[in-house]
Write a protein that binds this DNA or RNA. Structure first.
Lengths: 247, 247
DNA sequence: CGGTCCGTTGAGTTTAATCAAGAAACGTGG
DNA sequence: CCACGTTTCTTGATTAAACTCAACGGACCG
């Protein structure tokens, strides 16, 4: 069975057997990484291509006053291209949130792979378009949504992404985010997250406890979030996700 | 002389003469569009590939309560790939801010072009990586920067991007953004933008008047913004920009 | 069993939003 | 080139959302 990264790319472009075979070599590069380990630090020279095969990661940036902003959450199957020509040094860090399996491909190998397999490049390009869609959705949230809406929206997004990679159960998903990490993701403080979460719990909408998201009223949650299923949903061409729990 | 889109892609990948020739056909597709015209509306089926050859555009999204969030600003040379398989319908609109020259390439033609010219695909992919970098920088700003820092940061970004496409003079640049548009870009209100702008003007840092940005103290501006020149700068491999006015 | 990290709550403060009103700039047709 | 309507900018007063500071309870871990 192909790994989640290959399966994800397969949704985004028609890969032939040779393409898949090339991608399967990635598994040899996989290594185990402990939780809360920095894979790439802000200021490092970029270069490699990272793939999360198992576990969660985050892209984060520190700002002057010591605050942190998480600019992306990585789930199994997600990748980051730290393109060397694009930027002289990393403007953000990438680290694990949980114990993870991560594959690292160096620049030269990736270049060769993409040159030999244009369909993989094509799929990677589409995958990149979707990542940007997620970024833009975050921008909308941070700019124009209240803290309650924002938290609800993030949970919808993560639950849906989790569904697409088989991480989500019915109305529940493992979610290794402390209130502080949620705060750094949503541009709020952990104290405020705590209060918002308390209200959502009291309203029987959802809860986050013991490292797990629990959705009590999916329909209400999506309504609070103003979640546009379209923005992530059908991107994956997975009808079962469309008909999933979040309706 | 190649158009700005071709020149931009040339920075991101080595294009040969055949690649450039293919891209030059784009010019035939150019059409003039009036200011404040919607090219693609939220909810429309996606599909085409848009290139701004002249003028400014914006990607924007409306949220429930009628508020608007701008999720991207488009300058000459910038493109948007409204990929059809990625999403069932547009989750945001794209419109012009000024009178513009815009080229539209339909999906089939683009697919053919990218298949025939893998180097163009490669360059487009890198261009996409950089766009995502800009998005992530916006997320950092909206999450963790004050209104003053945020406005300063946006001006640094736009000035630098303007420099790269020859839109910026020494310490000055045409900037067709009303205070309301700035507010919708930064997730603030126009009233608040007005006050922040008044303070920056009073502090002799910068000003926006008569549709133009004027930078009075570039060094102070970048310090207020916490502007990381690296995140956009060297991406373009343009040493002259690195040594540019914003130091 | 003690330490550390995480979650919880209250009180007071700050930032930016809202509401409202008037001035300036812009655009368009006469 | 002017007159008029509209958009944009400006300012003040008030309100709301989220932050800060501080303290304590609970969970997890070695």
């Amino acid at each position: 069975m192909d790994n989640l990264f290959i399966r994800k790319l397969s949704y985004f472009g028609s890969l032939n057997e040779s393409d898949r075979a090339a991608l399967r070599h990635i598994d040899c590069r996989a290594r185990e990484v402990k939780a809360h380990h920095e894979l790439i630090r802000e200021g490092d020279p970029p270069g490699p291509f990272l793939i999360f095969l198992k576990g969660w990661g985050a892209r984060s940036k520190l700002v002057r006053n010591g605050q942190r902003q998480i600019v992306g959450l990585l789930m199994p199957g997600d990748s980051c291209d730290l393109h060397a020509n694009a930027v002289a040094e990393m403007d953000h860090s990438i680290g694990t949130l949980t114990a993870s399996t991560v594959a690292t491909i160096n620049r030269a190998e990736l270049d060769q792979l993409l040159e030999d397999h244009p369909k993989v490049l094509r799929a990677l390009y589409v995958s990149q378009l979707i990542d940007e869609g997620i970024c833009r959705a975050w921008i909308v949230g941070m700019g124009r949504r209240s803290s309650r809406e924002r938290l609800a929206h993030l949970m919808c997004e993560l639950y849906m992404r989790g569904q697409n990679v088989g991480l989500a159960d019915e109305n529940q998903m493992s979610l290794p985010l402390t209130q502080e990490l949620l705060a750094d993701t949503l541009g709020l403080t952990s104290v405020h997250i705590n209060r918002v979460l308390r209200d959502l719990r009291a309203d029987q909408v959802m809860d986050i406890r013991h490292g797990a998201l629990e959705i009590n009223d999916a329909s209400l949650l999506t309504r609070i979030a103003g979640f546009d299923e379209n923005y992530l949903h059908r991107r994956l061409n997975q009808p079962q996700a469309v008909a999933g729990v979040l309706r």
